[in-house]
């Protein structure tokens, strides 16, 4: 270590790997992982999400899962929760749509209306 700058660069990189544990209020993507969700391909959707986030270096987005949401026929379901915005639920997701969603919604802030099946009015 030769300088404070060098340390800072190292720190910024390292921070991304532990951001998940810091419990900050960021974007959350929730995938429905009930039995029918998994049967409908929710795991593949989730893997695509994780992979896309990694490719785009979006370390501050958290991906979690939830159990049965009672909307089995529209599975796989993906919800996006962002502070100060209504919760968006996408249905009939595929790995391809999931990747599109990251680019459009998470990066550019454009909800893909066509895939949306529910929009919660109350701001979370």
């Amino acid at each position: 270590m030769k300088s404070l700058d060098e340390l800072k660069k190292l720190r910024e990189k390292a921070q991304e790997t532990i951001r998940l544990r810091e419990q900050t209020e960021g974007t959350k993507i929730i995938v429905g992982m009930g039995t029918c969700g998994i049967a409908a391909g929710a795991r593949e959707v989730m893997l695509a999400l994780v992979d896309e986030l990694q490719k785009k270096n979006l370390a501050d987005v958290v991906v979690t899962q939830t159990g049965c949401a009672g909307l089995c026929e529209k599975e796989p379901l993906v919800e996006v929760v962002r502070p100060g915005q209504p919760k968006i639920t996408y249905g009939y997701m595929t790995p391809e749509k999931a990747r599109q969603m990251i680019t459009s919604h998470i990066v550019n802030g454009q909800v893909i209306g066509e895939y949306v099946i529910a929009r919660e009015d109350t701001v979370s």
Binding site: M1, S3, L4, L7, L10, R11, A14, T17, I18
Partner: peptide
């Protein structure tokens, strides 16, 4: 690296510098 991510060794750097 995880220690450094939590501001580790910043104090030492500032002190020495």
């Amino acid at each position: 690296d995880e220690y450094i991510a939590r501001d580790g060794y910043e104090a030492l750097g500032r002190v020495l510098r």
